[in-house]
Amino acid sequence: MTKIKSLADLRKKKEDLQAKIALREKSDSPEGRVLVKVAMATCGIASGSKDVMEYIADELNKRNIDAIVSQTGCMGYCYAEPTIEVTLPGKEPVVYGDVDVKKADEIIEKYIRNQELVDGIIPVNYQTIENNKEE
């Protein structure tokens, strides 16, 4: 397969992809999606959150899990970076610390897929980032 080098190549690939997606018919309701936020401030980046985010985005796509992967700032848990916040549809957000690629795999398989809690949640009484900020 030839490599994509220009905007014209990109457009062509996109058209191929569009044909495939039309067949699959994805549901486009954000409420039904898993939301993963990766802390991406200085502390997170320095601890390797970029690789973790790339891995999570890649794997969720490969494993056909309908999810949105986005970034957030520092939640104040610099000692436990990289941290991620996972929100399953209809559930409270859960924050995991010290997430490397291996841990991320465990979280995807156990928590996101089967809703089993995985070790490494911080802190236990965590609510949401918004609540945290107002203090």
Partner: peptide, 28 residues
Amino acid sequence: RELQEALDDMPVSNPNILGYIKEMITEN
């Protein structure tokens, strides 16, 4: 903006599209 133009209404944040864009940047 040029990317979005080339992609029409396809979101730039689509994981497959991001893969294509990454390849384009790396090649260039």
